[in-house]
Amino acid sequence: MSTASTSSSDATLSKATSSLHRSASLVRLKEWGIRSLLFLCAAVSILTTLGIVAVLFSNAIYDVSPRQVGPNGEVRTNEAFFQQVSLTEFVFETRWTPGYTEKHFGIMPLVCGTLMISGIAALIGLPIGLCSAIYLSEYAVPRTRALIKPVLEILAGIPTVVYGYFALVFVTPYILKPLFQDLLGFNVGVFNAASAGIVVGIMIIPMISSLSEDVLRSVPRSLREAAYALGSTKFDVSTRVVVPAALSGIIASFLLAISRAVGETMAVTIAAGQTAIVTADPLRSVATMTSYIVNVSKGDAVIGSIEEKSIYAVGLTLFLMTLVMNIISQFVLRRFREVYN
């Protein structure tokens, strides 16, 4: 306090402010502490992302020290995936056989498998999810809603491995086989993309319905009343006013759900099998990017081998796909916001 008063030319003013300064600095210290803590929490996710990108990059694209000396003095090459395989082969080759003697590294079969299963899942999950959201938000009486919402939440809580077995032991033998094999004469494999796509579709329903219901319900009541006052039926109000007004949120929920479907691993690994082929037949076994990574990880691939490195290349591809989708969703959201607000 004495230093404060001597350093200032106006003694009375500095006395008054110096007593304020003391408590203020304590408060400021606390504020600084809280701020740092919160920043660290936020930084954790950024650091993790950076770490993941670094690992993917060093294993998939370029390793700075490819030669390593093992514990017994032997020299191991530890070159990154793309230091051994050209990008052209990775993108344009149609065979994916890293574990075979004759090795081919074309990502196309895995991308095809992923897109096919996500596509089937979207085809099933998006309309059912949106329709249940509209039902819950616009049509259901409170008692029905109180019954359906918890059931949907249970659906979201089921472990994905259970979905996988559900596809394998129920969807394929009791739905797909009787319908497509016995009735229509197609050959349905034990492992197939369709059953995986169906269960992933069911899996994303709660996500879409709950997110979309939230945005539908947040559409102001006054807008609904205005539509009713113009002679609308409930269906008109739902489809022509409420859904368009909530469109940006609905699209956001769709994109999140599709990201989930693309990244879904366990159910797909169990239900779709491991056949990395380029096919348009959903009744055949396919391999997805995620299921390939799982199988190599749990298998006996030698550390440092090209097979082990290939999962990083696949992982990087998956990462880029999700990134592109997020960028697209941001772009779409911004566009719709311009139109609708």
Binding site: P220, S222, L223, E225, A226, A227, Y228, A229, L230, G231, S232, T233, D236, R240, V241, P244, A245, V339, Y340, N341
Partner: peptide, 29 residues
Amino acid sequence: RKRVGMVFQKSTPFPKSIFDNIAYGPKVA
């Protein structure tokens, strides 16, 4: 409600174009 229309305290334009707002009633009809 088509014969007995209503205007509310808070203006409630639909998040659509001006044209689509006016055309809404005839369209649902």
